[in-house]
């Protein structure tokens, strides 16, 4: 499932089922968070369920993931996170000390971000009806600026900036789950990005769009943005950092790192004139040391994400349709 999810199947499920039935302006924006105008305030509201297997992995656990994931979704909408909820679905017989560890890491992560977990719910299901533990978190944040972040803001000549290397989370999780013996342990990049995002927003940089690169990885996030914006995004393969252990696992497994999940990586799309300023801010932050410009937005109105390789040929990144079957005859 490192590839899995976030592909065409999920897309069409959401489009055909949810959007058709629930149909309302906030939902129809199809962002990870809904931005809601209440009186004079603009609030951001999001929810996410976490079903990761294994529950503990190098660089984190499901608790850390559940808090960071929701904080990141709020941050990507340009909001300052304020409150979180916590819903637990626990399989009967789940070890209490494991639960303790997970709850502790949730609280630790929330405190570090300066947010409170203000409401929650706990359900226990029969043994065999859950994989130990599922967590749902919802989050509310407030938008301090009048800035609106959305794919529709994309302009020709904008640059795409990423805050680090890609693929660590997906490969770390997979290695743990499938029992790979790696030469170097690989840690998930799971992290709360809201602090770094706040620095960028406060700096006055005219960010047009941001997206965290979770399920489906860099490729899926950019394809969604490009489709919504009706613009071509062109990436430069040589600019995208991939750690050696990630690269070598991907090579042996035949996985495309551009589609592998991350939990502490995001892209921001902004005018090229402000790229240097954005990079300077990011490079000074622990979560942005490897930040780099990895591509730009092309003129014209063709929704497509392309990636240019070392020798200068260009490949189209497509939404994955379920399993990846080779096309070579």
């Amino acid at each position: 499932m490192a590839h899995g999810g976030g592909g065409q199947l999920t897309q069409s499920l959401i489009d055909k089922l949810m959007l058709a039935e629930f149909d309302n302006p906030a939902l129809n924006e199809k962002n990870d968070s809904a931005v809601l105008a209440i009186n004079s305030e603009r609030l951001s509201f999001t929810t996410d369920s976490y079903v990761v297997n294994p529950l503990f992995f190098p660089g984190g656990d499901i608790g850390k993931l559940a808090v960071c994931g929701t904080l990141n979704d709020l941050a990507m909408s340009g909001a300052r996170p304020l409150f979180l909820s916590c819903g637990l679905i626990i399989e009967e017989g789940f070890a209490i000390d494991s639960l303790q560890k997970i709850i502790h890491s949730m609280s630790h992560q929330a405190k570090a971000a300066g947010v409170n977990i203000v409401t929650g719910d706990t359900k226990v299901v029969e043994k065999g009806k859950g994989d130990g533990l599922y967590i749902n978190t919802s989050g509310i944040g407030v938008l301090d600026t009048a800035m609106s972040l959305s794919p529709s803001m994309l302009q020709h000549d904008d640059v795409v900036i990423i805050n680090g290397d890609i693929g660590r989370h997906g490969i770390a999780i997979m290695a743990q789950r499938e029992g790979f013996k790696l030469e170097q342990t690989l840690e998930s990049d799971c992290a709360d990005l809201s602090g770094l995002v706040k620095l960028l927003l406060d700096s006055g940089i005219d960010i047009h769009c941001m997206r965290d690169l979770t399920r489906g990885g860099l490729a899926t996030a950019l394809i969604e943005i490009s489709t919504a914006a009706n613009k071509q995004i062109m990436l430069d393969e040589t600019a995208i950092a991939i750690a050696d252990p990630v690269r070598s696992v991907c090579e042996v497994l035949g996985l495309d790192p551009y589609y592998v999940a991350n939990e502490g990586r995001f892209i921001s799309i902004l005018p090229s004139a402000q790229a240097a300023q954005a990079l300077a801010i990011m490079h000074a932050h622990p979560l942005g040391k490897q930040a780099a410009v990895i591509g730009n937005v092309h003129k014209g109105s063709q929704a497509m994400v392309t990636i240019k390789n070392r020798i200068g040929t260009t490949r189209i990144l497509q939404l994955l349709s379920g399993s990846q079957l080779p096309r070579i005859c």
């Binding site: 499938e178 790979f180 030469e183 696992v249 035949g254 399993s323």
Partner: peptide
């Protein structure tokens, strides 16, 4: 050795391993 350490679980757990009846 590193490759084999990954290929063994790959084979056993059929990770990213579609089935084929290819003569090629």
């Amino acid at each position: 050795e590193e490759e084999k350490a990954l290929l063994q679980p790959m084979l056993n757990r059929r990770i990213n391993s579609p089935r084929s009846s290819s003569l090629g």
